[in-house]
Design a protein around this nucleic acid. Structure first.
Lengths: 229, 229
DNA sequence: ATTAACTGTGTCTGTCGGACACAATAAGGT
DNA sequence: ACCTTATTGTGTCCGACAGACACAGTTAAT
């Protein structure tokens, strides 16, 4: 699986020329997922789009799990470069870039849940994030934990705001209108703080993302400046 | 769906006595998920354990999506009480409680991905979290955003450390040994910062959780103290 | 020319969620 | 007491899915 992700497989010497490539298959799967959601990505559907038989795909990929891993790493792409920024600016830009990526391919929020092998693009993202914190006084574990906090927050917000072709949305949208508001009003006494908090008019676009980023980066700055004394 | 979650359905007057209850079905599903992972929860499997026919379940639940929603809210349970704590202590305890919940039922990490109706227990968790921030000077949206950051972080760490019966783990464990370390060493020049960061010996138990909580709470404290001036 | 490796295809199985019709059951209205 | 009517659990059926396996055609090494 790791070999697949990293393209580590020597081409066979004999036999017919392969009619497809692994990335070609993954790109077809990405197109489907972008257009119709991750649930629409089945072996049959991908094969039909190429077009080829379903079983032919298994010559390139051991199973669907692996295909999803490959298409996920491919869709993530390489992290954009932002030279000449402070660690804080760099991490902020990194987070926004990641958020944009999740918005470009909302199904990544579903396909990258749970432990999975790290592909080259994900490694590049990790590297770029950690890079911003080298020389900050944090040790390696702290650097990794920091970008983990950031990526986790980006995921959380993206999951709330993303609109996927397959349906499913965050709290503040459909869910609220779908009877939840009524029920909450009926049982307002059980959740007084929540009801009160929901009365506040929600802020502007991406408020949740920026709010969390500011808090996390503030917290990091506090630690870093303490370390640099 | 919302009515299901909140138990809002009047019992029918006529017809045979129901042999099961919705919560009974959900509890059976929870048992299966706890023991064998979320993937093992199929309508057939739940029915076999009760024991009853698969189709009988559809008299109590419209579909699998709804069953998962009900069992998720049920497994989450009510948030523990921690009276007499400062907002910071309360939010810390709240996060740890949530983390424990995810560890008790690791499949919650998978079943609660994506937008879904909020059930009574999830509402109670939200309420308890927001409650800690009432009177802090933050407005309702900021309070909600704050606990969203915290819950997102808890999710992230739980997802990394959780061991699920269905397999799948985080970055720092299996994944790393499964050839990733070797590949990363081979391509060390492509990811210099990442390789350097990974060289640091990893810290103690729950380091990632506490590190992120400290940063986030520090960031919140900064904002709150600024607001209270 | 022969062999051996590899490709894409066709066929098959088991599992899944769910639709639908049916007989058994229990209450309400008369 | 009777009949009507809503509701239960069951049995049968379907389409979609992931994947196993055998097979024929294709290409390079020998």
């Amino acid at each position: 699986m790791t070999e697949l992700l990293w393209g580590r497989q020597q081409p066979p010497s004999r036999g017919p020329k392969p009619a497809m490539t692994l990335t070609g298959i993954a790109e077809a799967a990405i197109r489907i997922a972008d257009a119709e959601g991750l649930d629409a990505v089945s072996m049959q559907r991908v094969a039909d789009d190429l077009p080829v038989t379903k079983m032919a795909l298994y010559r390139y990929v051991p199973g669907k799990t692996e295909l999803v891993a490959v298409m996920s790493d491919l869709a993530m792409g390489e992290p954009p470069e932002h030279p000449g920024l402070s660690w804080r600016e760099a991490l902020h830009a990194w987070s926004i870039d990641l958020f944009d990526g999740f918005n470009r391919h909302p199904w990544l929020l579903l396909s990258t849940v749970g432990g999975r092998p790290v592909g080259p693009n994900e490694a590049a993202w990790l590297d770029r994030g950690v890079q911003a914190l080298t020389g900050s006084g944090l040790n390696g574990t702290e650097q990794l934990d920091s970008i983990l906090v950031l990526s986790g927050h980006v995921r959380t917000i993206a999951l709330q705001t993303a609109t996927m072709p397959g349906g499913r949305q965050g709290l503040t949208e459909e869910t609220f209108t779908a009877g939840f508001a009524g029920i909450l009003a009926a049982e307002a006494d059980r959740f007084p703080s929540l009801v009160a908090a929901l009365r506040t008019p929600s802020g502007q676009e991406n408020q949740g993302l920026e709010f969390g980023l500011d808090r996390i980066l503030d917290g990091l700055e506090l630690l870093i400046s303490a370390r640099q004394d």
